[in-house]
């Protein structure tokens, strides 16, 4: 029984044309003396022919175009990043640089009272009141420059001066 299995395994290679010559000779000898394996061989041969009947049509032009379009998209993406076509896409240094820049930015933004940057003020806070006071003083000074201290109301109105500045 075990030898039948071996011969049947050989039969598959024989049908697909892959059995070495000496084994093929031994197989033919066995088939002459074993009707069970001979029938099995016939069935395997028929199966091989039947499998060949399943043929498929050519690939459509539309699907080729779709792939070409997707590849073109990939190429354009690649060329915007890489200097040469085919350059390595996997560049670990890019990740390191990006991470470093992100960390630095996050650090700078999170710093309270950064030097050289005006502190953000809430309405009604001391800083806001000081600023309003400063603006009013500036307006007053401008008025005095334009109109003179002795002739109040001779020049343009305060409101228009403010918008003109």
């Amino acid at each position: 029984m075990n030898s039948h299995r071996v011969y049947r395994q050989w039969l598959i290679w024989y049908v697909s044309g892959e059995l070495p010559v000496n084994q093929a000779r031994a197989l033919r000898h066995h088939l002459d003396s074993c009707p069970v394996c001979a029938r099995w061989f016939e069935e395997q041969l028929e199966l091989w022919r039947m499998l060949s009947e399943w043929r498929l049509p050519e690939v459509t032009v539309a699907s080729n175009r779709e792939l070409e379009w997707r590849l073109e998209l990939e190429r354009s993406r690649g060329s915007s990043h890489a200097v040469a076509y085919g350059a390595a896409e996997w560049a670990p240094w890019r990740l390191v640089v990006a991470a470093a820049v992100t960390c630095a930015l996050a650090l700078v933004l999170s710093l309270p009272n950064r030097p050289g940057v005006a502190t953000r003020s809430e309405p009604g806070t001391l800083v806001e009141l000081e600023r309003i006071e400063q603006v009013l003083e500036d307006l007053e000074m401008l008025q005095q420059l334009d109109l003179g201290l002795d002739e109040p109301g001779a020049g343009p109105q305060v409101s228009t001066v403010g918008t003109g500045v």
Binding site: R8, Q9, I12, W13, R39, W40, E42, E43, Q44, E46, L47, R49, M50, L51, E53
Partner: peptide, 30 residues
């Protein structure tokens, strides 16, 4: 792989035995 293919072809033969058996009407029209 040889063992895998043997089992696969044996499965196919068993499943399609009514078509592959010599003398079968469908098979004889091949």
């Amino acid at each position: 792989v040889k063992s895998l293919l043997y089992r696969a072809y044996e499965n196919l033969r068993t499943r399609l035995v009514h078509l592959v058996r010599p003398g079968n009407a469908a098979g004889s029209l091949r």
